[in-house]
Amino acid sequence: MDIPRDKLLEIYERMVTIRKFEDRVHDEYAAGRIPGFVHLYAGEEAVAVGVCAHLSDADSITSTHRGHGHCIAKGVGVNEMMAELYGRATGACKGKGGSMHIADIDRGMLGANGIVGGGVPLACGAALTAQVQGSGVVAVSFFGDGGANEGTFHEGLNLAAIWKLPAIFVVENNRYAQSTSVKYASAGGDIAARAQAYGIPGVTVDGLDLFDVYETTGAAIDRARAGDGPTLLECQTYRFYGHYEGDTQGYRSREEIEEYRTNHCAILRFRNRVTEQGLVAADELDAIDAQVADAIDAAVEFAANSPFPDASEVTTDVYVNYQEVI
């Protein structure tokens, strides 16, 4: 599948934005400037970007606790994202959500999600809206190898299959559910094969290869838009940081992490391919690197200089309308 040149540049820009955003959050968190729990997406960029490159704001995605990459891939701005992580009033959720609940409904980003597997039924609902209204849009649910062991995964796949919902289920198999190996926790050893039980296509994808993700997702989206129902994609990938910031990672070796960082970096792989094939010049990509670095610096500055929410905000936004008389 040929990807237009402009698209290649956009894809690169999004992947680098995710990487630099996460590297910076890692540093900011370590410096004590970001409160709460943070789970970083670095290493898995090709999955979020390869999938979302096909989507418009009208298409919906649901995400996970490791949601920053999905947000950036779906077009959420890094300023409001960083401000949200900083707990500021200018954040994407006015400081009420934090890392695990960043959302942007207007861009079809239905939220990171602190509950493993929690987004799968929500994506079915977004796909249901599309089907009822005949809008032609699709819904994508991202979740991990851990999420594929939740009941919601099975209920969601079954529901989407019987109703032929325009949904794509994307498993990001990064080999570890928290500290637990997929080899231990996932019976059968082949998550994509679970699709067979629901009579839908299940495809194993090299999640470190942007082109493989892009092409496979394109076929799944075509199928969904044609009314032929959902597809399960198992994208095999790897996370560079621990499960959470502060994770001592005794469950995997430094050599393993270094091997992936050095020899299986999705961004490097993409960069080498497009430059070797003469699709894009290296200096164009260098320019993007520099622009993104500036944008991340600006995002941190924006966040750090933004006000915290007023304490009166504790009680707003619970309901659209709530008339309680005491």
Partner: peptide, 14 residues
């Protein structure tokens, strides 16, 4: 869990 969750997702999308 599937259809109550789908109702939430459908409500959030219109």
């Amino acid at each position: 869990a599937g259809f109550i969750g789908a109702a939430v997702g459908a409500a959030a999308t219109g």
